[in-house]
């Protein structure tokens, strides 16, 4: 693994907490690595586990799912669905040989701009640690 390796991380954020938290990090000018790109959904409950697989297939080296703290979901229980789904998914990924350092789940509220920075940093750092990911990659589909 070369020292130059910069991982590519895809993040799925819920609109109400984590996306707002990431916005707050911006408003507060908190600096973090640019390796992570965000896809906004309304709720973590919307995130189909296939999205995660798909991100890996398309070439992501790491994936992050982030939403409201348990109990604070804007849609009452969407993040509970996500928590169950992705806890299982994490084990499944481990089972098929994907290092758990590539897949992260976090709870960042709309007021936690500083926590968002920490989450991005640790996600990117861990993806960097395990290096490029090619196990799932397939030929690029033409959308």
């Amino acid at each position: 693994m070369s020292e130059q390796f910069e991982p590519n991380v895809v993040a799925f954020l819920c609109n109400w907490c984590s996306y707002a938290g990431a916005d707050l990090a911006g408003t507060s000018r908190i600096q973090y690595p640019p390796n992570l790109n965000v896809i906004r959904v309304m709720c973590t409950g919307r995130i189909n586990p296939l999205f995660v697989i798909n991100a890996f297939q398309q070439g992501a080296d790491g994936v992050l799912v982030s939403g409201c703290h348990p109990g604070d979901c804007h849609y009452m229980e969407g993040n509970y669905f996500a928590r169950r789904r992705f806890t299982m998914m994490k084990e499944l990924l481990d089972y098929v040989g994907v290092d758990n350092k590539r897949f992260h789940m976090s709870w960042v509220s709309a007021s936690e701009g500083a926590k968002w920075k920490d989450v991005v940093k640790s996600t990117v750092d861990e993806a960097k640690e395990v290096g490029p990911f090619a196990q799932f990659q397939r030929n690029k589909i033409n959308w």
Binding site: N8, V10, I39, V41, F51, N54, A55, F56, Q58, A60
Partner: peptide
């Protein structure tokens, strides 16, 4: 959403 993933994953 999948096209977004495709772009962000591949680029």
């Amino acid at each position: 959403i999948l096209p977004q993933i495709a772009v962000l994953g591949a680029m």
